[in-house]
Design a protein around this nucleic acid. Structure first.
Length: 489
RNA sequence: GGCGCCAUCGUCCAGAGGUCAGGACGGCGGGUUUUCAGCCCGUAGACCGGAGUUCGAUUCUCCGUGGCGCUACCA
Protein backbone atom coordinates (compact mmCIF):
# COMPACT_ATOMS: atom_id res chain seq x y z
CA UNK A 1 0.00 0.00 0.00
CA UNK A 2 1.48 3.31 -0.98
CA UNK A 3 1.42 5.92 1.74
CA UNK A 4 0.76 9.61 1.48
CA UNK A 5 2.50 11.29 4.37
CA UNK A 6 3.01 14.88 5.25
CA UNK A 7 5.34 17.15 7.11
CA UNK A 8 3.42 20.11 8.48
CA UNK A 9 5.74 22.75 9.86
CA UNK A 10 4.57 26.00 11.29
CA UNK A 11 6.56 29.13 10.50
CA UNK A 12 6.99 30.12 14.12
CA UNK A 13 10.71 29.53 14.17
CA UNK A 14 13.54 27.77 12.48
CA UNK A 15 12.96 24.03 12.47
CA UNK A 16 15.10 22.00 14.86
CA UNK A 17 16.62 18.59 14.52
CA UNK A 18 13.65 16.87 16.13
CA UNK A 19 11.31 18.35 13.56
CA UNK A 20 13.46 17.17 10.73
CA UNK A 21 13.61 13.68 12.16
CA UNK A 22 9.88 13.36 11.64
CA UNK A 23 10.38 14.57 8.08
CA UNK A 24 12.94 11.81 7.65
CA UNK A 25 10.44 9.18 8.79
CA UNK A 26 7.81 10.71 6.52
CA UNK A 27 10.13 10.59 3.57
CA UNK A 28 11.18 7.03 4.35
CA UNK A 29 7.65 5.72 4.55
CA UNK A 30 6.82 7.42 1.27
CA UNK A 31 9.85 5.95 -0.45
CA UNK A 32 9.39 2.56 1.13
CA UNK A 33 5.81 2.26 -0.05
CA UNK A 34 6.20 4.07 -3.33
CA UNK A 35 3.91 6.79 -2.04
CA UNK A 36 4.22 10.53 -1.77
CA UNK A 37 5.79 12.89 0.70
CA UNK A 38 3.97 16.17 0.98
CA UNK A 39 4.72 19.26 3.02
CA UNK A 40 2.14 21.77 4.10
CA UNK A 41 2.70 25.07 5.78
CA UNK A 42 0.54 25.49 8.86
CA UNK A 43 0.48 29.24 9.10
CA UNK A 44 -2.79 29.89 10.87
CA UNK A 45 -1.19 31.46 13.90
CA UNK A 46 -0.75 35.05 12.85
CA UNK A 47 0.17 36.42 16.25
CA UNK A 48 3.09 38.68 15.35
CA UNK A 49 5.06 37.51 18.35
CA UNK A 50 5.00 33.99 16.95
CA UNK A 51 4.44 34.18 13.21
CA UNK A 52 7.84 34.52 11.57
CA UNK A 53 7.52 34.08 7.80
CA UNK A 54 11.22 34.68 7.41
CA UNK A 55 11.78 31.15 8.68
CA UNK A 56 9.97 29.57 5.76
CA UNK A 57 13.27 29.77 3.92
CA UNK A 58 14.94 27.77 6.69
CA UNK A 59 12.28 25.11 6.40
CA UNK A 60 12.77 24.81 2.68
CA UNK A 61 16.54 24.82 2.90
CA UNK A 62 16.58 22.20 5.64
CA UNK A 63 14.39 19.78 3.72
CA UNK A 64 16.34 20.21 0.51
CA UNK A 65 19.70 19.95 2.17
CA UNK A 66 18.75 16.78 4.03
CA UNK A 67 17.70 15.25 0.75
CA UNK A 68 14.08 14.79 1.75
CA UNK A 69 12.55 17.26 -0.65
CA UNK A 70 8.77 16.82 -0.69
CA UNK A 71 7.07 15.47 -3.78
CA UNK A 72 4.29 17.99 -3.25
CA UNK A 73 4.59 21.24 -1.37
CA UNK A 74 4.10 24.96 -1.60
CA UNK A 75 7.34 25.38 -3.51
CA UNK A 76 6.55 23.19 -6.49
CA UNK A 77 2.83 22.62 -6.04
CA UNK A 78 0.93 19.39 -6.63
CA UNK A 79 -2.53 18.01 -7.24
CA UNK A 80 -3.83 18.70 -3.75
CA UNK A 81 -2.89 22.34 -3.34
CA UNK A 82 -2.72 24.92 -2.15
CA UNK A 83 -0.19 23.66 0.36
CA UNK A 84 -0.47 26.64 2.64
CA UNK A 85 -3.26 26.74 5.19
CA UNK A 86 -3.85 30.47 4.97
CA UNK A 87 -4.93 29.86 1.38
CA UNK A 88 -7.44 27.19 2.30
CA UNK A 89 -9.64 29.11 4.72
CA UNK A 90 -13.04 28.28 3.13
CA UNK A 91 -12.42 24.57 3.67
CA UNK A 92 -12.20 25.03 7.43
CA UNK A 93 -15.26 27.25 7.54
CA UNK A 94 -17.23 24.63 5.72
CA UNK A 95 -16.10 21.86 8.03
CA UNK A 96 -16.90 24.02 11.04
CA UNK A 97 -20.38 24.64 9.74
CA UNK A 98 -21.02 20.96 9.12
CA UNK A 99 -19.89 20.16 12.61
CA UNK A 100 -22.23 22.78 14.04
CA UNK A 101 -25.14 21.56 11.96
CA UNK A 102 -24.77 18.09 13.35
CA UNK A 103 -24.34 19.33 16.91
CA UNK A 104 -20.69 18.36 17.16
CA UNK A 105 -19.59 21.95 17.55
CA UNK A 106 -21.00 25.12 19.02
CA UNK A 107 -20.31 28.82 19.20
CA UNK A 108 -18.60 30.12 22.29
CA UNK A 109 -18.97 33.78 23.18
CA UNK A 110 -16.81 33.73 26.27
CA UNK A 111 -14.37 36.58 26.53
CA UNK A 112 -10.69 36.08 27.03
CA UNK A 113 -11.12 37.65 30.45
CA UNK A 114 -13.72 35.13 31.49
CA UNK A 115 -11.60 32.28 30.19
CA UNK A 116 -8.55 33.56 32.04
CA UNK A 117 -10.48 33.98 35.28
CA UNK A 118 -11.95 30.51 34.90
CA UNK A 119 -8.54 28.97 34.36
CA UNK A 120 -7.10 30.82 37.30
CA UNK A 121 -9.89 29.64 39.56
CA UNK A 122 -9.43 26.07 38.40
CA UNK A 123 -5.74 26.19 39.08
CA UNK A 124 -6.26 27.77 42.48
CA UNK A 125 -8.75 25.05 43.37
CA UNK A 126 -6.39 22.39 42.10
CA UNK A 127 -9.05 21.06 39.78
CA UNK A 128 -8.45 20.02 36.20
CA UNK A 129 -8.19 22.91 33.79
CA UNK A 130 -10.29 23.10 30.68
CA UNK A 131 -13.24 24.93 29.24
CA UNK A 132 -16.26 24.75 31.52
CA UNK A 133 -18.63 24.40 28.56
CA UNK A 134 -20.46 27.53 29.58
CA UNK A 135 -21.67 28.34 26.07
CA UNK A 136 -22.60 24.77 25.22
CA UNK A 137 -25.87 25.42 27.05
CA UNK A 138 -26.90 28.02 24.50
CA UNK A 139 -29.58 26.97 22.04
CA UNK A 140 -28.84 27.26 18.37
CA UNK A 141 -31.34 30.13 18.20
CA UNK A 142 -29.71 32.03 21.03
CA UNK A 143 -26.32 31.57 19.48
CA UNK A 144 -27.55 32.64 16.05
CA UNK A 145 -29.04 35.73 17.58
CA UNK A 146 -25.91 36.70 19.47
CA UNK A 147 -23.81 36.16 16.41
CA UNK A 148 -26.20 38.21 14.32
CA UNK A 149 -25.81 41.06 16.78
CA UNK A 150 -22.11 40.92 16.02
CA UNK A 151 -20.86 39.29 19.20
CA UNK A 152 -17.47 37.74 18.54
CA UNK A 153 -17.31 34.00 18.95
CA UNK A 154 -15.14 30.97 18.54
CA UNK A 155 -16.37 27.56 17.48
CA UNK A 156 -15.68 24.76 19.89
CA UNK A 157 -15.80 21.01 19.55
CA UNK A 158 -18.69 19.47 21.49
CA UNK A 159 -16.88 16.55 23.05
CA UNK A 160 -19.24 13.81 24.28
CA UNK A 161 -19.61 14.06 28.03
CA UNK A 162 -19.40 10.33 28.52
CA UNK A 163 -17.62 7.38 27.09
CA UNK A 164 -14.11 7.18 25.81
CA UNK A 165 -12.24 7.70 22.60
CA UNK A 166 -9.78 5.08 21.49
CA UNK A 167 -7.43 5.16 18.60
CA UNK A 168 -4.86 2.76 17.33
CA UNK A 169 -1.30 3.98 17.18
CA UNK A 170 1.20 2.23 14.95
CA UNK A 171 3.94 2.76 17.51
CA UNK A 172 2.18 2.87 20.87
CA UNK A 173 -0.74 0.53 20.33
CA UNK A 174 -4.30 1.25 21.41
CA UNK A 175 -4.62 4.51 23.27
CA UNK A 176 -7.76 5.43 25.17
CA UNK A 177 -8.82 8.76 26.61
CA UNK A 178 -11.91 9.22 28.72
CA UNK A 179 -14.02 11.86 27.00
CA UNK A 180 -14.50 13.69 30.27
CA UNK A 181 -10.81 14.51 30.10
CA UNK A 182 -10.97 15.88 26.58
CA UNK A 183 -11.42 19.62 26.36
CA UNK A 184 -14.02 21.36 24.20
CA UNK A 185 -11.24 22.60 22.00
CA UNK A 186 -11.52 25.78 19.95
CA UNK A 187 -11.76 24.80 16.31
CA UNK A 188 -12.27 28.19 14.71
CA UNK A 189 -10.85 31.31 16.25
CA UNK A 190 -12.88 34.49 16.54
CA UNK A 191 -11.19 35.79 13.43
CA UNK A 192 -12.54 32.84 11.50
CA UNK A 193 -9.21 31.09 11.11
CA UNK A 194 -8.86 27.47 12.17
CA UNK A 195 -6.77 26.19 15.01
CA UNK A 196 -4.38 23.33 14.44
CA UNK A 197 -6.93 20.72 15.43
CA UNK A 198 -9.42 21.59 12.72
CA UNK A 199 -6.87 22.57 10.12
CA UNK A 200 -4.86 19.41 10.35
CA UNK A 201 -7.89 17.15 10.06
CA UNK A 202 -9.46 19.01 7.18
CA UNK A 203 -6.24 19.21 5.22
CA UNK A 204 -5.06 15.70 5.91
CA UNK A 205 -8.43 14.48 4.72
CA UNK A 206 -8.56 16.58 1.58
CA UNK A 207 -4.96 15.83 0.76
CA UNK A 208 -5.50 12.10 1.01
CA UNK A 209 -3.01 11.65 3.82
CA UNK A 210 -2.84 8.02 4.93
CA UNK A 211 -0.34 8.27 7.80
CA UNK A 212 0.00 11.02 10.36
CA UNK A 213 3.57 10.86 11.62
CA UNK A 214 4.31 13.36 14.36
CA UNK A 215 5.92 13.75 17.75
CA UNK A 216 4.58 11.98 20.79
CA UNK A 217 3.74 15.36 22.30
CA UNK A 218 0.68 15.33 20.03
CA UNK A 219 -0.82 12.20 21.53
CA UNK A 220 -3.08 13.96 24.03
CA UNK A 221 -4.71 15.98 21.27
CA UNK A 222 -5.38 13.01 19.03
CA UNK A 223 -8.79 12.11 20.49
CA UNK A 224 -10.06 15.55 19.55
CA UNK A 225 -9.06 14.92 15.99
CA UNK A 226 -10.46 11.40 16.04
CA UNK A 227 -13.77 12.84 17.16
CA UNK A 228 -13.73 15.26 14.23
CA UNK A 229 -12.90 12.56 11.71
CA UNK A 230 -15.69 10.37 13.02
CA UNK A 231 -18.23 13.18 13.12
CA UNK A 232 -17.44 14.17 9.57
CA UNK A 233 -17.50 10.49 8.60
CA UNK A 234 -14.04 10.72 7.19
CA UNK A 235 -11.77 7.68 7.45
CA UNK A 236 -9.05 8.10 10.02
CA UNK A 237 -5.44 8.06 8.89
CA UNK A 238 -3.01 5.69 10.54
CA UNK A 239 -1.70 7.38 13.65
CA UNK A 240 2.04 7.17 14.03
CA UNK A 241 3.43 8.98 17.03
CA UNK A 242 7.15 8.91 17.41
CA UNK A 243 9.14 9.41 20.58
CA UNK A 244 10.44 12.85 21.40
CA UNK A 245 13.97 14.04 20.84
CA UNK A 246 15.49 15.21 24.10
CA UNK A 247 18.36 17.45 25.05
CA UNK A 248 21.14 16.44 27.41
CA UNK A 249 18.91 17.44 30.32
CA UNK A 250 16.33 14.93 29.10
CA UNK A 251 13.83 17.64 28.30
CA UNK A 252 12.05 18.10 24.99
CA UNK A 253 14.52 19.58 22.56
CA UNK A 254 14.09 23.28 22.14
CA UNK A 255 15.74 26.67 21.87
CA UNK A 256 17.27 26.34 25.29
CA UNK A 257 19.51 23.49 24.17
CA UNK A 258 22.09 25.49 22.27
CA UNK A 259 22.50 24.58 18.64
CA UNK A 260 19.39 22.65 17.80
CA UNK A 261 18.26 24.64 14.82
CA UNK A 262 18.78 22.55 11.77
CA UNK A 263 20.39 25.34 9.80
CA UNK A 264 23.07 25.53 12.49
CA UNK A 265 24.08 21.98 11.71
CA UNK A 266 24.22 22.81 8.04
CA UNK A 267 26.53 25.72 8.80
CA UNK A 268 28.78 23.68 11.04
CA UNK A 269 29.58 21.39 8.19
CA UNK A 270 27.75 18.16 8.70
CA UNK A 271 27.18 16.01 5.66
CA UNK A 272 23.55 15.43 4.64
CA UNK A 273 23.93 11.66 4.49
CA UNK A 274 25.56 11.55 7.91
CA UNK A 275 22.81 13.66 9.39
CA UNK A 276 20.17 11.52 7.73
CA UNK A 277 21.79 8.33 8.97
CA UNK A 278 22.09 9.68 12.49
CA UNK A 279 18.55 11.02 12.64
CA UNK A 280 17.10 7.74 11.42
CA UNK A 281 18.89 5.78 14.11
CA UNK A 282 17.61 8.14 16.76
CA UNK A 283 14.45 6.24 17.57
CA UNK A 284 14.53 3.56 14.92
CA UNK A 285 16.62 0.51 14.32
CA UNK A 286 16.84 -1.96 11.48
CA UNK A 287 16.58 -4.72 14.04
CA UNK A 288 20.23 -5.60 13.85
CA UNK A 289 23.46 -3.87 14.82
CA UNK A 290 24.14 -1.83 11.72
CA UNK A 291 25.10 1.79 12.33
CA UNK A 292 26.44 3.22 9.11
CA UNK A 293 23.84 2.65 6.45
CA UNK A 294 23.31 4.11 3.00
CA UNK A 295 20.02 5.68 2.09
CA UNK A 296 19.10 2.71 -0.04
CA UNK A 297 19.84 0.32 2.78
CA UNK A 298 17.77 2.41 5.14
CA UNK A 299 14.82 2.59 2.78
CA UNK A 300 15.11 -1.14 2.29
CA UNK A 301 15.15 -1.85 6.02
CA UNK A 302 12.68 0.79 7.12
CA UNK A 303 9.42 -0.11 8.75
CA UNK A 304 7.17 1.54 11.28
CA UNK A 305 7.55 -1.53 13.45
CA UNK A 306 11.17 -0.62 14.03
CA UNK A 307 10.32 2.68 15.67
CA UNK A 308 11.15 2.85 19.35
CA UNK A 309 8.82 4.08 22.06
CA UNK A 310 11.56 5.60 24.16
CA UNK A 311 12.39 9.25 24.03
CA UNK A 312 15.90 9.71 22.66
CA UNK A 313 18.61 12.03 23.89
CA UNK A 314 20.31 13.78 21.01
CA UNK A 315 23.95 12.69 21.24
CA UNK A 316 26.20 15.25 19.59
CA UNK A 317 29.26 13.06 20.10
CA UNK A 318 27.81 10.21 18.15
CA UNK A 319 26.71 12.58 15.40
CA UNK A 320 30.24 13.95 15.20
CA UNK A 321 31.69 10.48 15.05
CA UNK A 322 29.32 9.48 12.31
CA UNK A 323 30.03 12.64 10.35
CA UNK A 324 33.74 11.89 10.54
CA UNK A 325 33.06 8.45 9.14
CA UNK A 326 31.16 9.99 6.23
CA UNK A 327 33.85 12.57 5.61
CA UNK A 328 36.52 9.91 5.35
CA UNK A 329 34.36 7.80 3.07
CA UNK A 330 33.48 10.71 0.81
CA UNK A 331 35.10 11.71 -2.44
CA UNK A 332 38.03 13.98 -1.47
CA UNK A 333 37.22 16.46 -4.20
CA UNK A 334 33.71 16.85 -2.92
CA UNK A 335 35.00 17.43 0.60
CA UNK A 336 37.49 19.96 -0.70
CA UNK A 337 34.76 21.87 -2.49
CA UNK A 338 32.60 21.86 0.61
CA UNK A 339 35.51 23.17 2.68
CA UNK A 340 36.16 26.25 0.58
CA UNK A 341 33.48 28.44 2.13
CA UNK A 342 34.93 27.86 5.57
CA UNK A 343 38.39 28.89 4.43
CA UNK A 344 36.98 32.02 2.87
CA UNK A 345 35.02 32.82 5.98
CA UNK A 346 38.18 32.50 8.05
CA UNK A 347 39.96 34.81 5.65
CA UNK A 348 42.42 32.10 4.64
CA UNK A 349 41.41 32.26 1.04
CA UNK A 350 40.24 35.04 -1.20
CA UNK A 351 36.89 35.11 -2.89
CA UNK A 352 38.46 35.02 -6.33
CA UNK A 353 41.51 32.82 -5.93
CA UNK A 354 44.30 32.69 -8.44
CA UNK A 355 45.11 29.39 -10.12
CA UNK A 356 48.05 29.09 -7.82
CA UNK A 357 45.88 29.58 -4.74
CA UNK A 358 43.37 27.08 -6.00
CA UNK A 359 46.05 24.48 -6.55
CA UNK A 360 47.49 25.11 -3.12
CA UNK A 361 44.13 24.67 -1.42
CA UNK A 362 43.52 21.52 -3.43
CA UNK A 363 46.80 20.13 -2.12
CA UNK A 364 46.21 21.15 1.47
CA UNK A 365 42.64 20.07 2.18
CA UNK A 366 43.14 16.35 1.60
CA UNK A 367 45.90 16.41 4.19
CA UNK A 368 43.60 17.65 6.92
CA UNK A 369 40.19 16.38 5.78
CA UNK A 370 40.52 12.92 7.31
CA UNK A 371 40.99 14.49 10.70
CA UNK A 372 37.80 16.52 10.64
CA UNK A 373 34.62 15.70 12.46
CA UNK A 374 32.77 18.66 10.98
CA UNK A 375 33.82 20.66 7.96
CA UNK A 376 33.94 23.98 9.78
CA UNK A 377 36.97 22.67 11.65
CA UNK A 378 38.95 22.86 8.45
CA UNK A 379 39.94 26.46 9.08
CA UNK A 380 41.67 25.78 12.37
CA UNK A 381 43.09 22.50 11.16
CA UNK A 382 44.73 24.09 8.13
CA UNK A 383 45.47 27.59 9.37
CA UNK A 384 49.25 27.21 9.41
CA UNK A 385 49.22 26.31 5.75
CA UNK A 386 48.02 29.80 5.02
CA UNK A 387 49.47 31.94 7.78
CA UNK A 388 52.86 31.79 9.44
CA UNK A 389 52.26 30.56 12.98
CA UNK A 390 52.48 33.40 15.47
CA UNK A 391 53.81 31.14 18.18
CA UNK A 392 54.76 27.56 18.85
CA UNK A 393 53.03 25.10 21.09
CA UNK A 394 54.81 25.65 24.43
CA UNK A 395 55.22 22.01 25.31
CA UNK A 396 56.52 21.10 21.92
CA UNK A 397 58.87 24.05 21.93
CA UNK A 398 60.32 23.07 25.26
CA UNK A 399 60.79 19.52 24.12
CA UNK A 400 62.17 20.01 20.62
CA UNK A 401 63.47 23.55 20.32
CA UNK A 402 65.16 24.22 23.62
CA UNK A 403 68.76 24.16 24.73
CA UNK A 404 71.86 23.60 22.70
CA UNK A 405 70.46 20.28 21.52
CA UNK A 406 67.44 21.87 20.01
CA UNK A 407 69.40 24.71 18.50
CA UNK A 408 71.91 22.39 16.91
CA UNK A 409 69.20 20.14 15.55
CA UNK A 410 67.38 23.07 14.03
CA UNK A 411 70.52 24.34 12.34
CA UNK A 412 71.22 20.97 10.81
CA UNK A 413 67.63 20.81 9.56
CA UNK A 414 67.93 24.28 8.05
CA UNK A 415 71.15 23.39 6.28
CA UNK A 416 69.71 20.18 4.96
CA UNK A 417 66.55 21.74 3.59
CA UNK A 418 68.48 24.64 2.08
CA UNK A 419 69.84 22.07 -0.32
CA UNK A 420 66.44 20.54 -1.00
CA UNK A 421 65.02 20.35 -4.50
CA UNK A 422 62.27 22.75 -5.47
CA UNK A 423 59.49 21.71 -5.77
CA UNK A 424 59.96 19.69 -2.66
CA UNK A 425 58.38 16.27 -2.99
CA UNK A 426 57.35 14.16 -0.01
CA UNK A 427 59.97 11.62 -1.01
CA UNK A 428 62.71 14.25 -1.11
CA UNK A 429 61.64 15.57 2.27
CA UNK A 430 61.80 12.10 3.74
CA UNK A 431 65.24 11.48 2.29
CA UNK A 432 66.49 14.70 3.78
CA UNK A 433 65.17 13.86 7.22
CA UNK A 434 66.46 10.30 7.00
CA UNK A 435 69.96 11.56 6.26
CA UNK A 436 70.10 13.63 9.42
CA UNK A 437 70.37 11.17 12.34
CA UNK A 438 73.74 9.62 13.05
CA UNK A 439 74.22 5.86 12.90
CA UNK A 440 71.89 4.14 15.29
CA UNK A 441 70.03 7.33 16.07
CA UNK A 442 66.29 7.73 15.61
CA UNK A 443 64.91 10.14 13.07
CA UNK A 444 62.05 10.99 15.40
CA UNK A 445 63.66 14.06 17.05
CA UNK A 446 64.34 15.56 13.64
CA UNK A 447 60.81 14.94 12.54
CA UNK A 448 59.34 16.52 15.64
CA UNK A 449 61.66 19.48 15.53
CA UNK A 450 60.92 20.11 11.89
CA UNK A 451 57.22 19.86 12.50
CA UNK A 452 57.07 22.38 15.28
CA UNK A 453 59.48 24.72 13.52
CA UNK A 454 57.46 24.62 10.32
CA UNK A 455 53.98 24.67 11.78
CA UNK A 456 54.20 25.73 15.41
CA UNK A 457 52.14 22.65 16.21
CA UNK A 458 52.88 19.20 17.55
CA UNK A 459 50.07 17.45 15.75
CA UNK A 460 48.96 17.31 12.17
CA UNK A 461 49.25 15.46 8.88
CA UNK A 462 52.24 13.33 7.96
CA UNK A 463 55.31 15.53 8.01
CA UNK A 464 56.65 14.78 4.55
CA UNK A 465 53.37 15.46 2.76
CA UNK A 466 52.95 18.53 4.90
CA UNK A 467 56.36 19.94 3.98
CA UNK A 468 55.79 19.18 0.34
CA UNK A 469 52.46 20.98 0.36
CA UNK A 470 53.96 23.96 2.17
CA UNK A 471 56.64 24.22 -0.50
CA UNK A 472 60.34 24.87 -0.13
CA UNK A 473 60.13 28.65 0.17
CA UNK A 474 57.68 28.59 3.08
CA UNK A 475 59.51 25.76 4.76
CA UNK A 476 62.81 27.62 4.64
CA UNK A 477 61.46 30.92 5.91
CA UNK A 478 59.68 29.21 8.77
CA UNK A 479 62.63 27.08 9.75
CA UNK A 480 64.80 30.20 9.94
CA UNK A 481 62.22 32.08 11.87
CA UNK A 482 62.01 29.22 14.37
CA UNK A 483 65.46 30.32 15.57
CA UNK A 484 63.57 32.96 17.54
CA UNK A 485 61.65 30.24 19.31
CA UNK A 486 64.90 28.57 20.27
CA UNK A 487 66.33 31.82 21.57
CA UNK A 488 63.29 32.47 23.72
CA UNK A 489 63.07 28.94 25.02
C1' G B 1 -3.47 18.82 40.37
C1' G B 2 -5.71 15.99 35.99
C1' C B 3 -4.75 13.05 31.70
C1' G B 4 -1.26 10.32 28.68
C1' C B 5 3.32 8.00 27.38
C1' C B 6 7.90 5.75 28.75
C1' A B 7 11.41 2.61 31.85
C1' U B 8 18.04 -2.59 29.32
C1' C B 9 25.25 0.06 30.14
C1' G B 10 26.53 7.61 30.90
C1' U B 11 23.99 7.96 25.60
C1' C B 12 21.45 5.52 21.19
C1' C B 13 19.79 0.85 19.70
C1' A B 14 19.27 -5.02 19.88
C1' G B 15 17.28 -9.02 22.64
C1' A B 16 14.54 -13.68 24.21
C1' G B 17 10.11 -16.83 29.18
C1' G B 18 15.97 -20.44 30.26
C1' U B 19 21.57 -15.77 26.63
C1' C B 20 28.43 -15.43 29.43
C1' A B 21 22.09 -9.77 28.28
C1' G B 22 24.66 -8.04 22.28
C1' G B 23 26.31 -3.72 18.96
C1' A B 24 27.56 1.53 18.42
C1' C B 25 29.07 6.42 20.59
C1' G B 26 31.64 8.07 24.73
C1' G B 27 35.37 6.43 28.88
C1' C B 28 39.72 3.68 30.23
C1' G B 29 44.15 0.55 28.81
C1' G B 30 47.32 -1.33 25.03
C1' G B 31 49.21 -1.90 19.86
C1' U B 32 50.47 0.55 15.02
C1' U B 33 52.44 5.21 12.73
C1' U B 34 57.13 10.78 12.97
C1' U B 35 52.77 13.54 15.96
C1' C B 36 47.42 13.94 15.84
C1' A B 37 43.41 11.69 13.66
C1' G B 38 42.52 6.87 11.92
C1' C B 39 42.92 1.69 12.32
C1' C B 40 43.45 -2.84 15.49
C1' C B 41 42.98 -5.31 20.25
C1' G B 42 41.30 -5.35 25.10
C1' U B 43 38.40 -3.41 29.33
C1' A B 44 34.80 -1.20 32.73
C1' G B 45 29.67 -0.35 32.32
C1' A B 46 22.66 -1.86 32.37
C1' C B 47 17.79 -5.18 32.80
C1' C B 48 14.07 1.05 38.48
C1' G B 49 11.49 -1.40 42.98
C1' G B 50 7.71 -4.77 44.94
C1' A B 51 4.13 -8.38 44.33
C1' G B 52 1.78 -12.01 41.00
C1' U B 53 1.84 -15.86 36.78
C1' U B 54 5.52 -19.75 35.83
C1' C B 55 9.66 -25.26 37.04
C1' G B 56 12.05 -20.55 35.62
C1' A B 57 11.32 -13.96 34.80
C1' U B 58 15.10 -8.50 32.82
C1' U B 59 11.13 -10.38 29.23
C1' C B 60 4.03 -11.43 30.76
C1' U B 61 0.31 -8.93 34.52
C1' C B 62 -0.61 -5.53 38.50
C1' C B 63 1.01 -1.85 41.92
C1' G B 64 4.63 1.60 43.26
C1' U B 65 8.49 4.90 41.98
C1' G B 66 10.87 7.90 38.59
C1' G B 67 11.27 10.61 33.99
C1' C B 68 8.93 13.08 30.11
C1' G B 69 4.76 15.21 27.57
C1' C B 70 -0.04 17.64 27.27
C1' U B 71 -3.30 20.56 30.02
C1' A B 72 -3.96 28.34 24.90
C1' C B 73 -8.64 31.76 20.21
C1' C B 74 0.37 28.18 19.73
C1' A B 75 1.49 24.54 16.78
Amino acid sequence: MSARVRYAPSPTGSPHVGNLRTAVYDWLLARKTGGAFVARLEDTDRDPTRYKPEFIGDIEQSLDWLGVTPDEWWVTGGDYGPYVQSERLPLYQEAGKRLMDMGMAYRCFCTEERLAAMREAQQAAGSPTGYDRHCRQLSREEADEKAARGAPFTVRLAVPREGATTYSDAVYGDITFGNRNVDDQVLLKSNGWPTYHLGVVVDDHHMGITHVIRGEDWMPSTPKQVLIYDALQWPQPAWVHIPLTLGKDRKKLGKRHGSTQFVDFIRQGYLPDAMFNFLVLLGWSPGDDRQIMSRDEIVEAFSLAGISRNPAVFDYDKLRWMNGEYIRAADPERIAALCLPYLREAGLMSGSPTDEETAYVAAVIPLVADRLKVLSEVADASRYFFEDPAEADPKGRRKWLSGSDGAARLERIIDAFAAAPDPLTPEAAEQIIDALPAEGESRAPFIHTTRIAATGATAGPGLFELLSALGKARVMSRLRRAREWVAEA
